[in-house]
Structures are given as structure tokens and as C-alpha cells.
Design a protein around this nucleic acid. Structure first.
Length: 426
RNA sequence: GGAGAGGUGGCCGAGUGGUUGAAGGCGCCGGUCUCGAAAACCGGUAUACCCCUCUGGGGUAUCGCGGGUUCGAAUCCCGCUCUCUCCGCCA
């Protein structure tokens, strides 16, 4: 959520930034109109309340001295009370309309974010290593995995429907190893605190992270208790410190968590239907930072570095994309994507998206910190990045490390965790 | 799921209709004292919003949340929510 002060005082800046995101900025005028009406109503209500407080105090004092208050004063105050109620209704209505409009506004792109309205305008910043070249006919992961018997698509569908699968034997063990290895890497070498979190959360939690009310379409929902399955660990982590005022000394705070992620993928129906590139349930290791505002853009660079380290240690060729203004996610002010090369399906796979959400989520979830003793609380900045998403890492390992005999070699870094060096050809 | 108890400021804890945004204590910050520290003493110590003749002044709201009664509610009534205890159930 943006700040109403910024919309009020820097309207043109906000308008220009929204245009860069290819967002409709007409609502700004509506918000400003509602905001003016709101403040008029608040002022009038406050004045009436001040009058009522004063008179009530006088009535109390008179009564304590045995005097009876005049009936006409009581009658007048009764009427003042009704006017106050009316103004309160009006303010409540205006608040909710302003809030609805504000909730629909995305974060503003940072000045360093390139122009562009969609993914075609994203910039390739750099490559690491060369896309894997195999001197035999490379197979896509769905063929490799089925042949090795480590992914069962049919039975996944039998259990849960399309876009579900099971990992079997070496496949399941490989996934478990990758998760444990990533958590250890970020926990031991990058300074993140490991968390195990609820993956089913209340409505308020989804609102705090910005997934509701706008993106309900992509979420699984339990109607009976109004609980929601998380699409990413970003949701519970963001809300860990909701409605808190942190000490400056506590920042920065780094968290890493492995969770299953659930996505209905309504908007992507029909896309990427083969294999495990786009599924309804997947595992992900997520990195998350709460930081002081002045440091957040530096923190974004180191966050990206942490994601890159994962790819490097796995020896997966990757490239870094800087997302353009029209392609950064709703709460983000600046984002980088990490894409690894998959030699079988011959495409770049997004395995991580690292974003600086500045104070956008913090404002929504009311996460503040006190810069110094006696100073006013300020909103923290939040950042998140996958570190990494499991299915696509598995795809890349299977496709890049496949051997002519049909086996798949495990990256060295993972071997202490898998306990095997190769998935043997069946 | 059943029964009961309870949610007050950073923490503990008073407070059942009228100068209570909230006693008292602890903690924290500043000061006095001291070579320094401790102790003691003095002072300060929530958040959000609004207005103005705006390096300052004034006002409003907030005692889990939302309604209601009343001139006036932390205090009374209703609904919700969360926590705790006991019973039941269960990994």
C-alpha cells in the first residue's frame, strides 16, 4: 500500500510511476477527492466531540456538587451525539472506499527500473557459465523422469487432478536433499534464521502480504474456517512481525523457510502443461529480509547474490534478468529474476525472483521500527527471493546432467545430502 | 466438540458510569550525587489521526475487535475473536 501523504503531496510523481507500470491512474483523483471529504468530516466530528467532552465534564462536576444539569443542555448534547454518529458513519464509509482504492494500487517502480510494459522489455543483465551443450539428443525432464521412474504423473492426477504428480524413490530423496542443502547454505553461510511455518493462514494474513483481496483467484481456500493455503512462504513470513514496532538493533532480520506452495494457476490454464514446470503444489525455499529503509537496495543485491550462489554451487548455468516497470510484481519496487538453463526443453526457467518491496508490505502489515530512542517509528523495508523453487531446480538438474546411458549425475554439492552420486538408468 | 475463567500502556498490575490516556511498581532515557559505578533522589517515557496565525499551539480517537445504552463508558448490554484451565477426541 502506498502512503496517502505521498499521493496527496507528490501526486504527479505517483501518477507518472503508475503510468510506467501500465496502471490506470484515474483512481488517484478519486482518492484525493475522497480524502478531502474525509478530512472535512473528521475535523467536524472532532470539534463536536470536543464540545461534548467539555459539556459532559461540566455536567459531571455540577452533579458532584448536587446540582441538576439543565434539560436543554442534555437535549442539545443528545442532538450533538446524533450528528457525531452521522459523521462517524460517513468517515467509516469514506475510509473503506479509500482503503479499497489504495489496496488496488501497486508499489511504485524505483527510478533504476527500466521502462517497458511487459516481459519483452526485461533486460538480460548477465550470464553465468554457458548453456549446457550435450553431444547426444537431450531429452525433456518428463521423459527422463518417467523413464527413471522418479516422477509419476498419472498417479498424481489420480490422487489430486491435473498438474499434480508424485516423486518416487530417487526423485523424492533428491528433492529432500536439495531442500536440506539450501536451508543449510542460507542458514550457515548467508546468515538467515531458519523457520518452520504454518502453510494455511487466516484472511488477515493474506491481506497483510497483499495477496488478498486482489489475487484470490490464484489461492486455494477453505470456506468453512476462512483459511487459505499459502502460495509462497513470503505470506507467513511477512506477517511474523505484523503490528509490531521493532528495535533498530534487531534489523536487519533474515529468515529462510521451506514450505509447500499452492497455486490454482487459473490465469495460466493451458500453459506449460507437460512436466513439473507449472504445478498446483510445489516446494520452495524462500529467503526474506526485514531491513532499514536506507539499506534496502543494497540488501536486494546481496539477496540476489544468495540466490545466485545456489545455482553456482549446483553448477546450473543461469542468467539474471532485471524486470521492467510493467513486469515487476504487485508489491515490488525493483525485481531481478534468476533463470537457469534447461538443456532438454531448451528454455530458461525462472527459479527465483528477488524483490525489494520497500515499505509497501510493511505499511499494509503495519511493520515498523524505532530508529532511535525517542524517535518516531518508521516502516521497515521488506525483501523476498526464492532460494530456490524446487521443481525447476529438479528439471534443470535432470536435463543438464543427463547422461548418454540415461542416468543422471548428481551435482557434487548435493552428494553429502543425497547419499548417492547418480540416479542410475532404469 | 462441552464447561469455566480471562484479555488494561514495553512488562507486572489497580481500576464496575464523571477532570482515568489511565494509580502504583518494574524496565528504559535524562539529570543530581560519585574518581567511576551502585544506591538514593528529581524529571521524562504509547500510537494514530485532524486543525491552526505552524522550528510552535490546539483537538480527537484508542483499556482484544465491532455494535448498543447514556449528556458522559476501561467500567453497563449484545455479538465476535483470542488466550488459559478442566473434560472429551486425536497425531
Amino acid at each position: 500500500m502506498l502512503s496517502i501523504e505521498q499521493i496527496r503531496n507528490e501526486t504527479d510523481t505517483v501518477r507518472a510511476a503508475l503510468v510506467r507500470r501500465a496502471e490506470d491512474e484515474d483512481c488517484l483523483d478519486d482518492i484525493l477527492t475522497l480524502d478531502t471529504r474525509r478530512r472535512v468530516a473528521i475535523t467536524e466530528g472532532d470539534e463536536l466531540r470536543a464540545r461534548r467532552n467539555q459539556v459532559s465534564r461540566e455536567i459531571g462536576q455540577a452533579r458532584s456538587q448536587g446540582d441538576q444539569p439543565a434539560d436543554d443542555i442534555i437535549a442539545e448534547m443528545r442532538e450533538v451525539g446524533q450528528r457525531i454518529s452521522g459523521l462517524e458513519d460517513e468517515v467509516r464509509d469514506l475510509d473503506s472506499r479509500i482503503n479499497d482504492a489504495m489496496m488496488a494500487l501497486p508499489n511504485l517502480p524505483d527510478a533504476s527500473v527500466p521502462d517497458g510494459t511487459d516481459e519483452t522489455a526485461n533486460l538480460v543483465l548477465r550470464h553465468w557459465s554457458e548453456p549446457t551443450k550435450l553431444d547426444f539428443e537431450a531429452q525433456p525432464h518428463w521423459d527422463i523422469a518417467e523413464r527413471l521412474g522418479i516422477i509419476d504423473f498419472q498417479r498424481g492426477v489420480k490422487l489430486s487432478g491435473s498438474r499434480f504428480y508424485t516423486l518416487n524413490g530417487y526423485g523424492a530423496r533428491l528433492e529432500r536433499a536439495i531442500i536440506a542443502w539450501m536451508l543449510d547454505l542460507h542458514g550457515n553461510e548467508h546468515g538467515y534464521t531458519e523457520m518452520s511455518l504454518p502453510i494455511i493462514v487466516r484472511r488477515e494474513t493474506m491481506e497483510g502480504s497483499g495477496n488478498l483481496p486482489l489475487f484470490a483467484d490464484n489461492l486455494y481456500h477453505d470456506e468453512e474456517d476462512d483459511l487459505w493455503l499459502i502460495p509462497t512462504a513470503e505470506v507467513p513470513v511477512t506477517n511474523l512481525h505484523r503490528d509490531e514496532i521493532l528495535d533498530a538493533g534487531q534489523l536487519p532480520m533474515y529468515y529462510v523457510a521451506h514450505t509447500p506452495c499452492f497455486r490454482r494457476e487459473k490465469a495460466a490454464a493451458g500453459r506449460d502443461t507437460r512436466g513439473i514446470k507449472r504445478v498446483h503444489q510445489f516446494n520452495k525455499v524462500e529467503m526474506y529480509k526485514f531491513v532499514e529503509p536506507d539499506t534496502s537496495f543494497d540488501e536486494l543485491e546481496s539477496l540476489l547474490g544468495n540466490a545466485e550462489t545456489v545455482c553456482q554451487r549446483l553448477n546450473l548455468p543461469y542468467r539474471i534478468l532485471q524486470l521492467c516497470a510493467g513486469d515487476i510484481s504487485f508489491p515490488s519496487a525493483k525485481s531481478y529474476d534468476v533463470e537457469v538453463w534447461a538443456a532438454g526443453s531448451q528454455e530458461w526457467l525462472e527459479v527465483s525472483s528477488c524483490s525489494n518491496c520497500t515499505d509497501f508490505q510493511a505499511r499494509r502489515a503495519n511493520i515498523r521500527y524505532r530508529p532511535g530512542v525517542g524517535e518516531r517509528p518508521r516502516f521497515v523495508h521488506t525483501l523476498n527471493g526464492s532460494g530456490l523453487a524446487l521443481p525447476r531446480v529438479i528439471i534443470a538438474i535432470l536435463e543438464n546432467n543427463q547422461q548418454p546411458d540415461g542416468s543422471v549425475v548428481i551435482p557434487e554439492a548435493l552428494r553429502p545430502y543425497t547419499g548417492f552420486d547418480v540416479i542410475p538408468a532404469a
